[in-house]
């Protein structure tokens, strides 16, 4: 920064400020850009390279280029398809729940009622809970079939206890993840609701739209775009759900809760199958990029506005 004046001083003499400015600008940008470029490209390239190689850390000597063999193997592996299916169920299920609940919650919290600031914080709080903590609290304190709080509630209702992680492991996992991510959807949709011009609602009132019609015709359309953004952001995070699975089910029972992320973790760090894990990693990246493409387009559009 110090020599900016002298630089521009020279530049004025030369007739233009632009080149010196640009040089300084690049100097300031380069650390961030350089580091991110390395972070984004080097591991990506390595994943891609490994995915075409036979490479297992347990047998490091048996290693070499195998073409698309890793992919062939992966695509013919039923575990892979189970993982894809589990990932879709988890991501889509949680998305549906969080968007619906987020919409309802944000409408409720956007009302003018006593203590709404506190109520908002209470709804948003789960988002800030460390993921392994969230998983363990639910798994033990709430879901435990013997001593858990929910077991007691079921007992009060005269219903039998449920061994959540044995009989409906995916559902249990989805409840935890939905609890963690509903605040995110609520927060974004609530922010969006606050940007709704109140005069629009009043105009609709003058036009004879009752409370329900105002929600249907004015509020929900206003939320459509933020909801789409929420869906895209959440999908990327949900695709990477890991700690919750590790601490509750470790992917089981069997492969019932093994998602793509968890499968790659097993292949890479438990089986040391670098080649196979990398091929799966490439597919995960492709999956995320499809979503990211639309998301980044939305971000770029907003930057222009």
């Amino acid at each position: 920064m110090m020599d900016a004046t002298t630089l521009s001083g020279e530049a004025i003499a030369a007739g233009s400020l632009a080149p010196a400015r640009r040089r300084l600008s690049w100097l300031m940008l380069s650390p961030a850009v350089g580091l991110l470029a390395v972070w984004a490209f080097v591991p990506l390239a390595m994943t891609l390279v490994y995915s075409f190689r036979r490479y297992n850390l347990l047998y490091p000597e048996r290693n070499g280029f195998v073409g698309i063999r890793n992919y062939e193997y992966l695509l013919s592996d039923p575990s892979f398809w189970t993982a894809i299916l589990n990932t879709l169920v988890l991501v889509l299920g949680v998305l549906a729940v969080t968007i619906v609940l987020g919409t309802v919650f944000s409408l409720l919290l956007n009302q003018n009622f006593p203590g709404r600031a506190a109520a908002r914080l209470m709804v948003i709080a789960p988002f800030f809970v460390l993921p392994p903590v969230a998983a363990l609290i639910w798994k033990n304190l709430l879901f435990d079939p013997l001593n858990g709080f929910i077991a007691w509630l079921l007992h009060l209702a005269g219903l039998p206890a449920i061994a959540w992680f044995t009989h409906v492991p995916m559902l249990a996992l989805m409840v935890i993840v939905a609890w963690e991510w509903t605040p995110f959807a609520t927060l974004i949709l609530l922010t969006a609701l606050q940007s709704l011009d109140p005069e629009q609602l009043e105009a609709a009132r003058m036009d004879g739209a009752g409370p329900t019609n105002r929600v249907i015709y004015i509020v929900l359309p206003h939320l459509a775009r933020p909801a789409a953004i929420t869906i895209m952001m959440e999908s990327i995070f949900l695709l990477s759900i890991f700690a919750e699975i590790l601490t509750t089910t470790a992917g089981g029972p069997g492969e019932a809760t093994t998602t793509l992320t968890y499968l790659i973790y097993i292949r890479a760090l438990l089986n040391f199958d670098i080649g196979g894990a990398s091929a799966a990693g490439v597919l995960a990246i492709v999956l995320a990029n499809i979503v990211a493409f639309f998301l980044m387009r939305a971000v770029a559009r907003n930057l222009e506005a």
């Binding site: 009043e202 036009d207 019609n213 359309p221 206003h222």
Partner: peptide, 27 residues
């Protein structure tokens, strides 16, 4: 009574025709 607002308060997701016809549609 009909009101014209300072900010116009047009419904951004509806066409001009949709905006103008909204009250009748509600009725």
């Amino acid at each position: 009574l009909a009101m014209v607002f300072q900010s116009y308060a047009l419904y951004p997701h509806m066409t001009v025709a949709g905006n103008m016809g909204f009250a009748l549609k509600m009725a």
